[in-house]
Design a protein around this nucleic acid. Structure first.
Length: 147
DNA sequence: GCCAACGTTGGC
DNA sequence: GCCAACGTTGGC
């Protein structure tokens, strides 16, 4: 896995990206080494994808099964067009795994944490690619035992 | 331009 | 399996 200090967020945008683990989970990304994040068909999520730059960090979140943050990934390549879109209008990025969290952080825990109520994850529950603020990032890392 | 119908996402 | 939230489509 890519060696990065996940608590050093200077100059990096922070994100949270959802995937259903029975379709594409953390272990699948680790096995692949690098994955293409495509198939997003929501305008706000796509805008977030287009904003991403190589070096940005993201939480990898398991939706539907687990319903928890499981690891940290890094955007390895930004500004791609979605290979699954024949029109080439939708966006994609490439990502690499950085670190599995010592303990997962569940949606239930996040919902129970007052400081995390403003997260896209909570406010826009169906958004598959949301942004994360540095204070939220660090608190979740702390909850995961990664700091 | 409104709104009903329908489809999808995602939590529970 | 159900339902709430949200997006899209199509009739008017």
């Amino acid at each position: 896995m890519t060696k990065i200090n996940i608590s050093d967020t200077t100059g990096r945008n922070l994100w949270l990206m959802k995937s259903e683990p029975d379709v594409y989970g953390w272990d699948d990304l680790v096995a692949e080494g690098e994955g293409t994040w495509d198939g997003v068909r929501n305008h706000l999520a796509a805008r977030n994808l287009r904003t991403m730059q190589a070096g940005d960090l993201a939480f990898f979140y398991h939706s539907n099964i687990g319903v928890e943050v499981v690891g940290v990934i890094v955007i390895s390549q930004g500004g791609l067009s979605d290979p699954t879109d024949p029109e080439g209008k939708w966006a994609a990025v490439k990502v690499k795994p950085v670190q599995k969290l010592p303990q997962t952080v569940t949606l239930k825990q996040i919902k129970a944490t007052p400081e995390l109520q403003e997260m896209d994850l909570i406010r826009l529950s169906r958004l598959s690619v949301g942004s994360v603020r540095p204070d939220e990032w660090n608190l979740i890392l702390r909850m995961a035992g990664a700091l």
